[in-house]
């Protein structure tokens, strides 16, 4: 994954960059399988590696394939990134180790979901049970966000098509 990201930074061919970002998503999905997030893994593979790549290719097809060489200085961003990264690494030093069953995250609501979700919702997959039942309103909000984004995309792109059509009519 680190290699993919470095290539994304270096390359100027946008088609290659978009393909690499698809590969990056797929690698992330395999990682999710390793850490037991199977539902997340197939969503990431379908949505992150699939739909996102298609969307970006669509955007590339109507814009340009090549990025111009960066003219502005990269020193300031690099400094900001290094400082922020160092601060974050310092922050992780207090984090519980990978896979630690005593970590605070496993102590609060998760045990209840794990123990009672089958009894209360009779859905064997806990992720589905929490998503659709305990946190149903979250999912409703998510659908609202997608709906809004869909409307926004349609409005933005219809204006493009509409104006093009008007220009065609003017030319005719």
């Amino acid at each position: 994954m680190v290699l993919t990201v470095l290539l994304i930074i270096r390359l100027h061919n946008l088609f290659a960059v978009v393909m690499l970002s698809g590969i990056y998503s797929l690698l992330a999905a395999t990682f999710f399988v390793v850490v037991d997030g199977v539902d997340v893994a197939f969503t990431e593979a379908a949505v992150g590696a699939g739909i996102s790549t298609v969307l970006m290719l669509g955007a590339l097809s109507v814009t340009t394939q090549r990025e111009k060489a960066a003219a502005k200085s990269t020193l300031v961003p690099l400094a900001v990134v290094v400082v922020t990264g160092a601060a974050l690494v310092y922050g992780t030093l207090d984090m519980p180790n990978y896979g630690d069953p005593e970590a605070p995250i496993h102590k609060h609501v998760a045990p209840r979901y794990i123990e009672d979700s089958l009894k209360e919702t009779s859905v064997p997959n806990m992720v589905t049970a929490v998503l659709a039942s305990y946190r149903g309103y979250d999912t409703l909000g998510e659908v609202t966000v997608i709906f809004t984004a869909g409307i926004g995309v349609i409005l933005l792109l219809v204006r493009v098509g509409g104006r093009r059509r008007r220009e065609d009519e003017d030319a005719a």
Binding site: V35, D39, T43, A59, A110, V127, E142, A149, V153, L156
Partner: peptide
């Protein structure tokens, strides 16, 4: 494993695609 982060990220992935589509538009 803890199911709660999985649920949150499942939602976040889908919302992420929605914002990506918006940005590309």
């Amino acid at each position: 494993s803890n199911p709660l982060p999985h649920v949150l990220i499942l939602t976040a992935i889908v919302v992420g695609v929605a914002t990506l589509a918006m940005g590309l538009a």
